[in-house]
Amino acid sequence: MLAVTDLTKSFVSPEGTRVEIVSVKAFALAAGEQVALRGESGSGKTTFLHLIAGILAADSGRVMLDGAEMTALGEAGRDKLRAGKIGYVFQTFNLLQGFSVLENVVLGMSFGPRGADRAHAKEVLERVGLGHRLDHFPRQLSTGQQQRVAVARALANRPKLVLADEPTGNLDRKSGREALALIREVCRENGAALLLVSHDEDVLAQFETRRDFGALNEAGKRASPLNATGESPPQQNQQNRKGTAA
């Protein structure tokens, strides 16, 4: 379902030198499979997910997703593929603060091939236990509830692949466990593959299949991370534009 081959991505450091962040020879994920990637902060795992999702354009290599080659597509094509086949759960939830819970989920759906389906959005929100919070705004919810909205939004389009980037990073241990269980359960129900990245051993321990991103990423073996925060380097924006224009 997901096959990554010879995928590389580099950025220009503040000093002006090109630094390779991601260099993954091969990585694959079967339909419905759930894999956890262990990776330290700044190891390039978020960049790796962004490359799979088509948010960033790769320098080289291939990302095949459900028969479509993400890396061969232009930006608009990647947007379309992402909207149709990928659900993304972020560490900081990334909910739209000015939109209600229901609208957040409906908007997430509206860019995909199925379009905005309020009835289905409600169903998904009920499934994650937020059927009574449809008209609430994110700021009116607890962090755990906000993450559940993010999960509902990621799953509402019935994606083939769910990418979860430190999904429990902003939650306390109990809420984190609940959120993780929910993500895995809902993915299973929807037949979606799940690729989760985390540095939290407690989270990783709950997965049967765990991979070490440090071992997977050749770039990580060659050079130390650019920074320790996991954030993209300053020139990333410029590089994104260069990459997406290509």
Partner: peptide, 8 residues
């Protein structure tokens, strides 16, 4: 966020 969700 909208772009990440697939908005062009």
């Amino acid at each position: 966020i909208l772009r990440a969700l697939g908005a062009r």
